[in-house]
C-alpha cells in the first residue's frame, strides 16, 4: 500500500472509532426523541453526572462493576425526578418552551457539577486495556474497539426493545400521537417518566464509558454537542440513523482534521457543525427520519 492510501485508511479507521462514540451518545437522543418528541439538550450533562457519580463511587472503594450498577440506579432515579419536576409541567407547551427548558436544565446541571466536582481533570481508574491493535500498519486502540462493540450492542437492544416489548410499543405510540395513545389505554405520564429514567441510565453508562476513553471533566458533556449533528444527519427518530450519522460525522471530522488542519488550524471541530448546517438546509429530517408533512 502506498503511503497516502495508508494514511487515508488510518484516518478512516480512527474516524470510525471516534464516530462510534458519537453514535453511542446519539442513541440517547434518539431514545428520548422517539418516545417523547423532545430533543433533550441536557443529555450530555446526564452523561457527565453519571460519570462523576461512578467516579466518586470507585474512588470510595466500590468495585467497578458494582459502581456502574449503582450509578445506573441512581441515574435512573435522577431521570425520574427530572421528568417529574422539569418536564412533566411542560406537557402540552409549545416545542420552543420545551427546548428552552432542557437548555436551562443543561447549563444548570453543568455548573452545579462544576461546583460539586471541580474543574480539574480526573483520571478515571480505567478498566479498559490501553493496548492497541495493529493490523498491516493500521492502528486501532482497544478502547475504541469497545466503543464500537457497545454501540453495536445498544443498537440491537434498542431495536429489540422498540420492536418487541410492550413498553417499547407504548413509547412509539406515545411519540406518534399522545391523544390516541391515551385513548388506547397507555399512561402517557408513565411512559414519559420511564423514558427519562431509562435514557438517564443509558446516558450514565455512556458517560462512564467516555470517561474511560477520555479524561473526566466538565467538558465531557461537549461530546453531546458533537452528537447533535450526528442525530440530525441520521434523522431524529431513526436508530440506525444515529449510528450511521455518528460514524459519518466521526470519519468526516478526522479526514478534515488530517488533511486541512495544516492550512486551517482547528477546522476539525467545525466540520460537524458545517455538516449540521448543510443537512438542515438540504434535508432537515435527515437521512432516515420521517418527513413531516404539513397539511393546509
Amino acid at each position: 500500500m502506498t503511503e497516502g492510501a495508508l494514511y487515508f485508511l488510518q484516518l478512516v479507521i480512527s474516524g470510525i472509532a471516534v464516530g462510534s462514540l458519537y453514535a453511542l451518545v446519539a442513541l440517547g437522543f434518539v431514545l428520548i426523541y422517539k418516545a417523547t418528541d423532545i430533543m433533550n439538550f441536557a443529555h450530555g450533562e446526564a452523561m457527565m453526572v453519571g460519570a462523576f457519580i461512578c467516579y466518586a463511587l470507585v474512588v470510595a472503594g466500590i468495585p467497578f462493576l458494582w459502581a456502574v450498577l449503582i450509578t445506573t440506579g441512581i441515574a435512573m432515579f435522577f431521570g425520574l425526578v427530572t421528568e417529574r419536576l422539569v418536564l412533566r409541567p411542560m406537557i402540552g407547551e409549545p416545542q420552543f418552551a420545551v427546548v428552552m427548558v432542557t437548555i436551562g436544565l443543561s447549563i444548570f446541571l453543568r455548573s452545579i457539577s462544576g461546583i460539586i466536582f471541580g474543574h480539574d481533570n480526573k483520571i478515571f481508574p480505567s478498566q479498559l486495556s490501553d493496548q492497541t491493535l495493529v493490523f498491516k500498519g493500521l492502528v486501532l486502540s482497544y478502547t475504541h474497539l469497545w466503543a464500537m462493540l457497545i454501540s453495536g450492542l445498544m443498537v440491537i437492544l434498542f431495536f429489540l426493545f422498540f420492536r418487541y416489548s410492550r413498553v417499547g410499543l407504548a413509547m412509539r405510540g406515545v411519540a406518534n400521537d399522545q391523544d390516541t395513545a391515551m385513548l388506547m389505554g397507555i399512561s402517557v405520564k408513565r411512559v414519559f417518566a420511564l423514558t427519562w429514567g431509562i435514557s438517564f441510565a443509558i446516558a450514565a453508562v455512556a458517560g462512564i464509558f467516555l470517561a474511560n476513553v477520555m479524561v473526566l471533566n466538565i467538558a465531557i458533556c461537549l461530546v453531546a454537542i458533537k452528537a447533535f449533528p450526528a442525530v440530525i444527519l441520521g434523522g431524529l427518530e431513526s436508530i440506525p440513523g444515529a449510528i450511521i450519522g455518528g460514524l459519518v460525522i466521526g470519519v468526516l471530522e478526522t479526514l478534515v482534521g488530517g488533511y486541512l488542519d495544516q492550512t486551517l488550524p482547528g477546522v476539525k471541530d467545525l466540520t460537524a457543525f458545517v455538516v449540521l448546517f448543510l443537512v438542515l438546509m438540504i434535508r432537515p429530517y435527515g437521512l432516515f427520519g420521517k418527513k413531516e408533512i404539513e397539511r393546509v
Binding site: E93, I103, L105, I107, F108
Partner: peptide, 11 residues
C-alpha cells in the same frame, strides 16, 4: 447555575 434555574422556573 442561576441562569439555568431561572430559565426553568420561569418557563
Amino acid at each position: 447555575a442561576a441562569f439555568g434555574l431561572l430559565i426553568m422556573i420561569f418557563l
